[in-house]
């Protein structure tokens, strides 16, 4: 068949010529044909020009170093840490930021001046958790679906719906007491929302949902208006603790929750 007439040139040939995707024999044939078809030749030249200009205008972005907030280490659990230094590095850094910023709310003000921090941790679990916090902590009559006086039933129900044993952490050391919990939709999976309050009536939520990567991550901080959140991943679940309290207290609470989760995980291999 080598002596046969090549198939006629069509639209796909002209597209593939511009993209450099013709084999050498076909390319030579098409280019020769263009020599006697100035209208199509001008069109190919214009298409090549658009392609070149697009690539030029967009090249600089891909040449930039990857911004810190897009480093994969933000998303991937760190290497397993020795038990002695189990508190995540980011947590320690966040504490020193708060303490270093003249302590307490002065430190909080310093953090507020850095909006990039607010964005940097705001993953989809965090956004959903903050939305759930705003929705249900504002409830006077029905903040939770199952109340704390039915805690065994609550644990059983949430565990069954999420298909994972759900732990209800004891946050008494941080001054928070369980109010109860509920199940929430979360994309094509489900989330559990536990709500706590302290003696002043300050409410805090712990949001957890399945579908995260295995292993564990560091704590990530996010703030949306007056609401602060720390999120992390542990054993295939995403956790987000959310409240209108200062970062230091919220981070301590996150640490307490994380410690109880890991104690449970270690106890039941």
């Amino acid at each position: 068949m080598s002596g046969a007439t090549p198939r006629p040139i069509d639209e796909d040939d002209l597209l593939a010529l511009v993209d450099g995707r013709l084999d050498p024999a076909r390319r030579a044939f098409v280019e020769k044909w263009l020599g006697s078809h100035p209208e199509e030749a001008a069109r190919v030249a214009a298409d090549r020009d658009v392609r070149r200009r697009l690539r030029e205008q967009l090249a600089s972005i891909a040449d930039e170093p990857i911004p810190e907030r897009l480093r994969l280490t933000n998303f991937i659990p760190l290497r397993p840490e020795p038990v002695a230094s189990r508190w995540p590095i980011a947590a320690a850094a966040a504490i020193s930021l708060v303490i270093g910023g003249a302590g307490g709310w002065a430190g909080h003000a310093a953090m507020q001046a850095k909006p990039i921090l607010e964005r940097s941790g705001a993953g989809s679990a965090t956004r959903d958790a903050v939305a759930a916090f705003r929705t249900f902590t504002a409830e006077v009559l029905h903040p939770v679906e199952v109340k704390a006086d039915q805690e065994p039933h609550l644990i059983q129900w949430l565990s069954k719906r999420l298909g994972q044993p759900v732990l209800v952490p004891d946050l008494g050391a941080e001054g928070f007491h369980l109010m109860g919990g509920r199940v929430l939709p979360a994309g094509n999976t489900l989330a559990a929302l536990l709500m706590y309050d302290d003696d002043q009536g300050t409410r805090l939520t712990l949001y957890s949902r399945v579908g995260a990567a295995d292993g564990r991550s560091s704590f990530r901080y996010a703030r949306e208006g007056d609401v602060a959140a720390f999120s992390w991943v542990e054993g295939g679940l995403s956790f987000v603790v959310t409240a209108r309290i200062d970062e230091a207290r919220l981070l301590r609470t996150a640490g307490t929750i994380d410690a109880q989760l890991r104690a449970r995980t270690n106890a039941t291999p």
Binding site: I61, A62, E64
Partner: peptide
Amino acid sequence: IARLIEPQIPALRR
């Protein structure tokens, strides 16, 4: 994950 995804980040940004 890091080895396979990280090289694609510049193009994903573009």
